[in-house]
Design a protein around this nucleic acid. Structure first.
Lengths: 195, 195
DNA sequence: CCCGTACCGATGCGCTTGCATCGGAACTGA
DNA sequence: TCAGTTCCGATGCAAGCGCATCGGTACGGG
């Protein structure tokens, strides 16, 4: 058996390169050659890992989805003691990708969302992610609502959808410079407080 | 003076073609040749109207911005009798581009938003539009809030930002198929009711 | 009537793209 | 040590891109 290469890790390496390039120049500016150069591998290696460019992009989307999800999970685990309400706040903040160091991920994410409107495979991947997030949020909200008694009974699923859409909208507005991340934080927490 | 052509209307014609193509294939799939073909003019004509492709795209963005703004304005004028609250609802609905016949505009808009994260000129144009919208919403909200007395005093500007971000997020989620436009409507109106 | 000017369609150029190909390098097992 | 197998880097190719160019066309003024 000759030399074996760890395909999985190489694919991840390449996915990282895709994200960096998508951050800098947009998804359209991602070419196989540039990806190879950025990942410090040859074009042939890239083509061995992914049969087509689209396959590469889909994998990259899955990669960063996983990273984001992982961060949310980590955040929830890190602060388990508090109430479901604060956990919700943390999760929402993570999702919004407002922190400076997440700006790159946010740009890549937005690029993929835009691309998904014309690419069926990307849309499928994205929908799965959103569905998972929405479910998680729904649970958090209904749990948080159990304690607090409210004048009007609230629909956890609808509130989850609201929160998810709001987070995404805020992310986009920060990215194009319409809002500062400060303002976005303010809006987000105000909304959460109203819940 | 030899034959003169109406440059302004031709530019609008081309902008329409750009929007159609961006709707079908994404902003990346917009090429000068295809635009020319779709607009039923020659490539030379396109190049006469716009010196570069970017100039064309920027004009197209301005064109559809204007159209959307115009629709919002028309909607507000059409139903002036009601309260500021219902006017707000109408405006928000228009902005969200949820109706089927606005799906194309929504796709184009999202494509431009994504592109704006890497293009300074596009970002500037977009920011101007969002600023105008936010201001309009702020006024509507503060006006609507004047009548209703509330437990917690609300910040009109913050609520305007929230509404704008929520509308955009919902639009995106409908486009990628995570929500149906029905669900988005539900979310939006529920949020408005909470105000 | 025809000349001059404003317009435009077609064509060419240089470049980049995604993808296919292949000779040789690298490493394992005997 | 060497044969065998797996991998990969370089190169080629056809297509498509944005943009520049230019000769022909059509119209309005003298």
């Amino acid at each position: 058996m000759p030399r074996q290469v760890d395909h999985a890790s190489r694919r991840r390496l390449i996915a990282e390169a895709v994200c960096h390039l998508a951050d800098e120049r947009g998804l359209e500016g991602v070419t196989l050659r540039d990806v190879a150069a950025r990942a410090q591998v040859s074009m042939g290696a890239v083509q061995r890992c992914f049969r087509t460019k689209e396959e590469m992009l889909v994998f990259a989307l899955g990669h960063i989805s996983e990273r984001i999800m992982e961060r949310v999970r980590a955040r929830l685990v890190r602060s388990p003691a508090q109430s479901a309400g604060t956990a919700l706040g943390h999760a929402a903040t993570e999702i919004s990708l407002l922190r400076e160091e997440q700006r790159a991920e946010a740009r890549v994410w937005l690029a993929f969302v835009a691309q998904a409107t014309v690419s069926k495979v990307l849309a499928t991947t994205l929908k799965a992610n959103y569905a998972a997030l929405q479910e998680a949020f729904t649970h958090l909200i209904s749990e948080a609502a159990r304690g607090a008694d409210r004048a009007t009974p609230l629909d956890p699923q609808r509130e989850a959808r609201t929160l998810l859409a709001l987070a995404d909208g805020l992310t986009a507005h920060v990215l194009i410079g319409h809002l500062t991340s400060q303002e976005a934080h303010d809006v987000l927490h105000s909304h959460l407080a109203a819940l």
